[in-house]
């Protein structure tokens, strides 16, 4: 397993970020709530191969339509979330959810978003991507939380909820939310958004400029 030490990174990597990447790697290797560990790693592997080809036009990527352990619809959803999430509308999401189920859809999103973050971090830092871990045995837990509601999203989420909507976007599958937040929270906090005090290396306007540009390039309105 990669130690995510980032000793060869061109930029400063804080200890909490490196630790969060190790933790995410361990979580990714285990069974999830609706996918086995082998399926989760197949999702992650497909997502990182698709994402690595994001500069290549889709018709030239030459990736197979299916992957071992994943159905064609699941592969299509992985690809869309990895490189075209900004074009997902209700009709597309409804069809995708009809194919694999709402909870598996949410867990897939969590895995794809997490591996994309880890690969973005590696590329931007100038380090090699870590090879995926070996899958652990064991069945998915199949747990569906209580207290779900419809707030107009494509999927049910916890409702009521005292924080921003994005923090409950994956709440249908708490384990997926935990995996995603394991990586996103330390980087988001490092960016300074969790504090009103601007004691970060970049100034707040610089951080917001970068964050806004990334969001706009991904066609994200939220």
């Amino acid at each position: 397993m990669s130690d995510f030490s980032y000793g060869d990174a061109a930029v400063t990597v804080t200890d909490d970020i490196a630790a969060s990447h190790r933790e995410a790697w361990a979580m990714l290797a285990g069974p999830g709530t609706w996918w086995t560990a082998a399926e989760r790693l197949a999702i992650a592997d497909r997502a990182r191969r698709t994402f690595a080809l994001r500069a290549t036009p889709p018709w030239l990527r030459q990736l197979p339509e299916t992957e071992p352990g994943l159905s064609a619809p699941a592969v299509a959803i992985v690809d869309k979330v990895a490189v075209g999430a900004g074009s997902i509308d209700r009709a597309w999401a409804t069809e995708a959810i009809a194919e694999i189920g709402d909870a598996r859809y949410v867990e897939l999103i969590g895995v794809v978003a997490t591996i994309v973050m880890l690969d973005v971090f590696a590329e931007a830092s100038g380090v090699a991507r870590a090879p995926l871990p070996d899958p652990e045995d064991g069945p998915p837990s199949g747990e569906r939380p209580d207290g779900l509601g419809d707030i107009g999203a494509h999927v049910p989420v916890l409702d009521p909820f005292p924080f921003a909507n994005v923090a409950r976007a994956l709440s249908l599958v708490p384990e997926a939310n935990k995996l995603f937040r394991c990586v996103s929270v330390p980087t988001y906090s490092a960016a300074g958004f969790s504090s009103l005090e601007w004691d970060t290396p970049l100034s707040r306007p610089q951080v917001e400029l970068v964050a806004s540009r990334v969001s706009a390039m991904n066609e994200c309105f939220y």
Partner: peptide, 19 residues
């Protein structure tokens, strides 16, 4: 770190369709 965080957040927000 900023680019990383928002590369994940945008995918979750758009794929789940949260308002």
């Amino acid at each position: 770190a900023t680019i990383t965080a928002f590369s994940g957040l945008v995918r979750v927000a758009d794929a789940t369709g949260i308002p």
